[in-house]
Amino acid sequence: MACSAVTLSVATIISVVAVACLSIGFSTDNWYEIRVDKNKTKLYIETHELQTDYEKDYRYYSRDEGLFRICFAEKKAKEVPTYLSPTQTECFNIDYYIPENEISDKFSDQRWERLHMARSVVALYIVAFFFLFLSFFTGIAGCWKRSHANLVSTGLLQLLSSLMDAGAMGLWHAVQFYDHHKLKDQYSYAQWPDVLKQTGVTEFYYGWSYILAWIGICQCLISSIMFLSAARCIRNEKRIEQSKNMQYLMPVYPDKRNPYGVNYAYAYPGPYHYHGSQYGIGPYAY
């Protein structure tokens, strides 16, 4: 009893924390932090006498990239339409080209691969949240009924959810790899101004939303293992309880006696034997 109770309590707490971490990481924008040194940028442009209007290009500004938005960390670029996000930062949406338009029709094959992977990141997270939603109901039923099958279902659903989230994270890294190493079009890192590629001018960091998402994935995996362990504990406890109850059961053997309580051997003693006549010897003596 103690094994299943403790394991279920720990698994429930970890799963709640995992859902909270995944939800916050999925909805916030600090996945990829890009920091641009404005002083070095301005000095480089003035030294090389470059003709560029860097105040209108958002690539010259520090920003945070999420799954849905790009938000400016400090000042925002001019003539870039933005809105105020829930975290009170100036942001603009990432375009996934749903539906597709005349801009996406000009994409190369590699750009389309990158776009499909970016869409799949969001799709896998949504599927993972759906599995977590289902595991909520099976977990409640398993805890209430102490059902081995429901707890196994809960553990497997959370395991699938963690695998989906891990796959989404892998695709997100693939998107970053395409941006920095494979793509050579106007939207990629290869076409950034040379000043932004200088050492110490632009720096890249993984943000707290990214770290929080990984923490949620690890906790979801741990909670799935804990639920499967709790199911095993409950099954073992039920077997021990059944074995103890068997000791108090009296063996019952079938009663082969006559159900009416009549002994027919005494009621009907058998055939009569002839012992001769009282008037003589033999059956015809007079």
Score class of each variant (00 low, 15 high):
residue 115 L to Q: 07
residue 262 V to S: 10
residue 128 A to V: 12
residue 281 I to P: 00
residue 5 A to R: 11
residue 132 L to K: 01
residue 40 K to L: 14
residue 46 E to C: 01
residue 277 S to Y: 13
residue 212 L to F: 06
residue 257 R to C: 01
residue 255 D to S: 06
residue 134 L to V: 09
residue 165 D to F: 10
residue 228 L to Y: 03
residue 127 V to C: 07
residue 261 G to F: 11
residue 161 S to Y: 00
residue 83 Y to D: 01
residue 3 C to F: 06
residue 271 P to I: 07
residue 268 Y to A: 09
residue 49 E to S: 15
residue 251 P to C: 02
residue 134 L to I: 10
residue 233 C to G: 08
residue 178 Y to V: 02
residue 30 N to W: 09
residue 21 C to S: 13
residue 278 Q to A: 08
residue 230 A to C: 11
residue 100 E to N: 03
residue 140 I to T: 04
residue 139 G to V: 00
residue 132 L to R: 01
residue 86 P to C: 05
residue 202 T to V: 03
residue 196 L to A: 10
residue 229 S to G: 11
residue 15 S to W: 00
residue 163 L to I: 13
residue 187 Y to C: 01
residue 24 I to K: 08
residue 116 H to S: 12
residue 206 Y to L: 15
residue 100 E to R: 06
residue 179 D to V: 03
residue 181 H to G: 01
residue 251 P to L: 06
residue 245 N to D: 07
residue 152 V to S: 05
residue 234 I to S: 05
residue 55 E to M: 04
residue 143 C to F: 11
residue 19 V to Y: 11
residue 163 L to M: 14
residue 47 T to L: 11
residue 124 L to Q: 04
residue 21 C to L: 14
residue 191 Q to R: 08
residue 142 G to N: 11
residue 264 Y to D: 08
residue 205 Y to E: 14
residue 205 Y to I: 06
residue 125 Y to I: 05
residue 158 Q to A: 08
residue 171 L to V: 01
residue 219 Q to F: 15
residue 9 S to T: 13
residue 219 Q to G: 15
residue 28 T to M: 06
residue 275 H to M: 11
residue 91 C to I: 03
residue 162 S to V: 06
residue 129 F to N: 03
residue 35 R to M: 01
residue 142 G to A: 12
residue 262 V to I: 15
residue 67 L to D: 07
residue 247 Q to M: 05
residue 247 Q to T: 04
residue 107 F to I: 04
residue 54 Y to A: 08
residue 231 A to N: 02
residue 196 L to C: 07
residue 168 A to T: 01
residue 85 S to P: 00
residue 7 T to V: 12
residue 252 V to H: 09
residue 231 A to L: 01
residue 181 H to I: 02
residue 74 E to L: 03
residue 11 A to H: 04
residue 252 V to T: 12
residue 189 Y to A: 11
residue 205 Y to H: 15
residue 182 K to M: 08
residue 50 L to T: 08
residue 141 A to L: 05
residue 88 Q to V: 00
residue 168 A to S: 12
residue 153 S to L: 15
residue 134 L to C: 12
residue 80 V to S: 07
residue 142 G to T: 08
residue 172 W to D: 06
residue 21 C to W: 04
residue 285 A to C: 03
residue 144 W to A: 14
residue 11 A to S: 14
residue 69 R to P: 01
residue 209 S to F: 09
residue 209 S to P: 04
residue 1 M to P: 08
residue 133 F to V: 11
residue 195 V to F: 06
residue 182 K to Y: 09
residue 245 N to L: 10
residue 269 P to L: 01
residue 82 T to C: 11
residue 92 F to H: 12
residue 269 P to V: 00
residue 110 Q to F: 02
residue 182 K to I: 15
residue 180 H to A: 13
residue 169 M to I: 13
residue 107 F to A: 03
residue 107 F to N: 05
residue 94 I to T: 00
residue 185 D to V: 08
residue 129 F to I: 04
residue 68 F to G: 07
residue 93 N to A: 10
residue 23 S to P: 01
residue 71 C to W: 05
residue 181 H to K: 12
residue 153 S to H: 11
residue 216 G to N: 03
residue 3 C to R: 03
residue 146 R to M: 01
residue 121 V to N: 12
residue 53 D to M: 05
residue 140 I to R: 05
residue 66 G to F: 07
residue 14 I to N: 00
residue 251 P to I: 04
residue 83 Y to G: 00
residue 203 E to T: 15
residue 162 S to R: 02
residue 5 A to C: 13
residue 200 G to E: 07
residue 78 K to M: 09
residue 227 F to R: 02
